[in-house]
Design a protein around this nucleic acid. Structure first.
Lengths: 334, 334
DNA sequence: CTGCCGAAGGCGAACGTTCGCCTAACCGGT
DNA sequence: ACCGGTTAGGCGAACGTTCGCCTTCGGCAG
């Protein structure tokens, strides 16, 4: 088998210098060689198609120039947006992104990342909230930044302002005059659900509107189960005039359930979503929602991580603002 | 700074053996040492928290155990599903996944992957179709598999059967009795668009239904522009009774446009999508669509790539079957 | 002529592994 | 006591870099 790659030695030989000199030149360490040899070396490298070996470089520099992304199954429409934005930022700062996916309660993926000597780890994985062992790992010596709540805390976090998300949704519905309000949430064990719900509930409470538990329907983030709980909710409590879904995907489920029941939106029931998916504007009717800044969040998290890697001080939390996007799925109650 | 990681030497010292012996033991090369020393070494490794250095290992083995994924912006709901499935497969076969994102007509990302000495490259990037230089690269000595058409060909490809996608959509509409049929496609330069359109057109043609160019609306894969071209289409040609959209996202746009015009779906106009997004079942009305096997495709592509890396023979093409999913957005014409 | 200096580039060492071969010690058989 | 064969483990080399120090040489001032 012919060698796939040429090494510095090959380049140096062709240029008639020592490989260390070639190294210097190819690392832009100019001034130390004459313009002539310099040119000869560059020519040789070009001609042979020299591609430096990041493994060897990483070994001696003790720096892999790599960061790990610990992700859940990010085929979820929104998780992938975090991942992409983070990846781009990482790449733009000269690092490579090594992606590992979480596997139920094992630190295999993190270990794997450690083997590759990643300079830091970015966590984009809601499921870590259930994983005790991961917290210890992440509080360890290798820099980490997370988008999710980490058991035990102590890991710098970036995210959007979940509490405020709940507040904005509540304020909007209150302003429209709603008083019989329900919410369809993700699993209640999730921090984001707790924060959004408490912001939502407290805002309603301040306006003397109560949010009893029977109007808080926890489900599983997806449209199908959201539709199912919406039916249950309305069977038990037909007077509800507004529903806040904790993400747009569930809001689609809510809308579908309402449609199936012949409840016109927004005339008899308003719906507010969360995320502002690209499709939100194409729901029937177009969905009023609280926009989550996915790209900004992913990018910000990566920036923070890279800053930590460089040894800079970083804030322990960074909450990006969210924003209400009013479309046609909300209106005053009948 | 205290060293972040302990090396084989540290482990060996603690166990009182040479580091090479420790290496043997930790690589499961048992039988060559006594059970005692073996246990001592394992204990030392555990106690010190030894994590092998994949960079050093890769260097001497001349095998990084890494594969590169060259991706476009996969925040696109469907691309990310390919990526995730591929990533999982790669990981499950003991490789790490290095993700690089394409940047307009530069081979920077590929070069980057080469620096890390990836064992192979998986291309999940529709935009490569526009990039001549990438083809040469991918036909080179490093194994590659692609989900997209590569300029110049010669790179093993995995994908779903695009032609058949068009055929299935056409057959379904013909069976329902439609004859005034249009289609909303992605950019016509894309292979997938060409294949789907030709399968669609030929099937119609065989039933004596023509698909004139004015009923083929090329646009940009997204719901907004799909809605816009739908309006144009119906302004010019109000008699259309069925529309085939090349993906579900655009189908949402088509549905929204129809709704805005007061055209009831499916009573006055049927709509067929493509992809079978999780939300397709929650469109209004639930979308009839051709399912694309995203996960299977991503996984299959990764398997193929890994097989090539192992030096096995692999087929130059692998087309996964697609399947029509009938819901409520299609019905006989008025 | 001596001494010094700067420019140009060579050179050894180290990074953390794996691999193959070498050696020392011990065993039993003659 | 000598031999041959195991068994347990040591050891040198190599992978492709970077880094810092060293050498060589020519030139120029004193």
């Amino acid at each position: 088998m012919v060698p796939l790659y040429v090494s510095l030695k090959d380049v140096a030989e062709r240029a008639g210098v020592s490989f260390q000199t070639a190294s210097k030149v190819l690392n832009g360490n100019s001034g130390v060689v004459s313009a002539q040899t310099r040119e000869r070396i560059l020519e040789a490298a070009r001609h042979l198609g020299y591609v430096p070996n990041a493994l060897a470089r990483g070994l001696v520099r003790r720096d892999s120039l790599t960061v790990g992304i610990l992700a859940d199954d990010f085929s979820d429409a929104s998780l992938s947006r975090f991942v992409v934005a983070a990846q781009r930022t990482i790449e733009s700062q000269g690092h490579a992104a090594l992606v590992a996916t979480t596997t139920q309660g094992s630190d295999g993926p993190l270990r794997r990342l450690q083997e590759y000597r990643v300079n830091g780890v970015l966590v984009i994985a809601p499921s870590v909230e259930e994983d005790e062992s991961v917290g210890e790992y992440l509080r360890g010596p290798i820099p980490a930044v997370t988008l999710n709540h980490i058991p035990g805390g102590g890991v710098p976090a970036v995210g959007s302002d979940h509490r405020r998300t709940g507040v904005l949704a509540a304020e909007h519905l209150l302003e429209l005059g709603h008083r019989a309000i329900a919410t369809v949430t993700g699993p209640t064990a999730r921090r984001v659900v707790v924060s959004r719900t408490s912001g939502f509930r407290e805002t309603l409470h301040a306006a003397d509107v109560e949010l009893p538990d029977r109007r808080v329907c926890a489900t599983d983030w997806d449209a199908r189960s959201a539709a199912a709980v919406t039916h249950e909710l309305l069977d038990a409590d037909p007077h509800v005039t507004a529903i806040f879904a904790h993400n747009d995907t569930m809001a689609f489920g809510v809308l579908a359930a309402l449609r199936a029941r012949g409840v016109p939106v927004p005339q008899r029931c308003s719906v507010v979503g969360c995320d502002d998916l690209p499709l939100a504007d194409f729901a029937a009717p177009p969905l009023t929602t609280v926009r989550v800044p996915f790209e900004e969040t992913g990018a910000r998290a990566a920036e923070l991580l890279l800053a930590r890697i460089r040894g800079e001080d970083t804030p322990p939390r960074d909450l990006l603002p969210v924003q209400l996007v009013v479309r046609s799925s909300t209106a005053p109650p009948p």
